[in-house]
Computed example of a mutant assay.
Amino acid sequence: MEEASSSSGKFEFDVFLSFRGADTRKGFTSHLYDRLKLHGISAFMDSDVLQRGQEINKLLDYIERSMIFMPIFSKGYAESRWCLKEITMMVACQRLIIPVFFDVEPAEVRDQIKHFAPAFERHKRDANMDQQEVRNWRRALKTVGELSGFHLKNDTIGDEAKLVLLIVKRLLSEVRKLPFLLPPEDLWLGGVDAHVEEVKELLSKSCSTVTFIGIRGMKGIGKTTIAKAIYNDLFLDFEASSCLFDIGEKYQRHRELELQRQLTRDILKSDERIYSVEEGRSIIKHGMKAKKVLLVLDDVDDSCQVDALAGGSDWFGDGSVIFITTTDKNVLLECGLSEGQIYNATVYRLLVWGLNEVKEAIDTWNSVT
């Protein structure tokens, strides 16, 4: 077992994984654990050594040192007294529990029926068992079985890989390790989520193997925040991803090679030196064409900037998505985007502006469009 440090100073682990080893250790739980580590989430997953050589009290101590609990309910979960002790301890700690109903239904956990029933019959008949403890196990399972979590059959139609991604995304949000943490005012106004869903709907209508989407709106309306929120929502679905911000400003300061170098570091994991824009174009194009890439080009004010960083569909592997934010619709049209590929962010954040600022912004917007 590998020791880890949680993102919270209060806890050693971000998440404690509770599971029956014989059911999921070498499959789903192992894949989930590896993916969590990949994204910087510290997870406790007990080892065979711990099960053989250490007391249950040691395992329960790891529960107390974890911020979030994730029981992975399989058909044999209730066969394990260790698992039942873990779930009881989790409920007693009164922290966030996110259950995963792997190959059982929530009702089986909640009411100890079907696959859970035989195990509890054996616990009940065991003369050496403390029946008060068995009743505690039942109450804990009832509590957790009523919680909202993840369901392999319902959420991903049995696709374990997709379920892993959903769980990782949820945990990244809970431990605040998403690529971008959005300001609280952007969240409570409720503007971001609506825009993200509308942009994703636009994306879903694309018939291209590589999709360019433009996000256009007046300065300060929240295009960058929308792009960050979309990136948070989608990045796990891609082999590689990158966000390049303030592109227009950096071009004005002749820092275009810096942008190309950042892109090669993010996507190609390379620190190769770039000495000209043309050389950078060649390196980026040949390096990305076999990858499924998510790319955000933010605050573009000239089509030549897009040409230097994402020159065309043939630069990317199938399934790639490129978002371009700009105040100038003509930039998007010059890049070959159609009206159906352009999202107009026209209302977001107006609530946080004063009336004078809104009027001034709209007047300016009308004068340039």
Rank of each mutant, 00 (worst) to 15 (best):
G248I: 04
L234R: 12
R125H: 04
A43P: 06
L355W: 04
A92P: 03
Y33K: 03
E272Q: 14
A240K: 15
Q51W: 04
L178P: 07
S18W: 08
L294Y: 05
F69H: 01
D155E: 08
G76A: 08
V164S: 07
C243M: 14
A227Q: 08
V168C: 13
S5G: 10
N366R: 05
I324D: 05
L84C: 05
N128S: 14
G158S: 02
M45S: 09
E256V: 07
S173R: 01
S204G: 12
N57Q: 13
A119T: 11
R281D: 14
D103W: 08
E339A: 11
H115Q: 15
K10G: 08
K153H: 06
S367V: 10
K205F: 03
M1G: 15
K75N: 11
D318R: 15
N232V: 02
K177D: 02
S320G: 04
D14V: 00
A290N: 10
I63W: 02
D14C: 02
K285S: 11
E256W: 03
L96G: 00
R52I: 05
V347R: 01
D193K: 14
I68L: 13
T29F: 08
T88G: 03
S42I: 00
A4P: 00
G354C: 11
L294Q: 07
V134R: 01
R170N: 09
H195I: 02
R65N: 15
T225Q: 11
G222N: 10
G287P: 14
S80W: 08
Y251V: 01
G222T: 04
L337I: 06
Q262H: 14
V352S: 13
Y33M: 10
G9S: 14
V368A: 08
D301R: 00
L141A: 12
R110I: 11
L60H: 13
L166D: 09
Y62T: 05
G280I: 06
L182F: 12
M67H: 11
I63Y: 01
E256G: 08
Q260V: 11
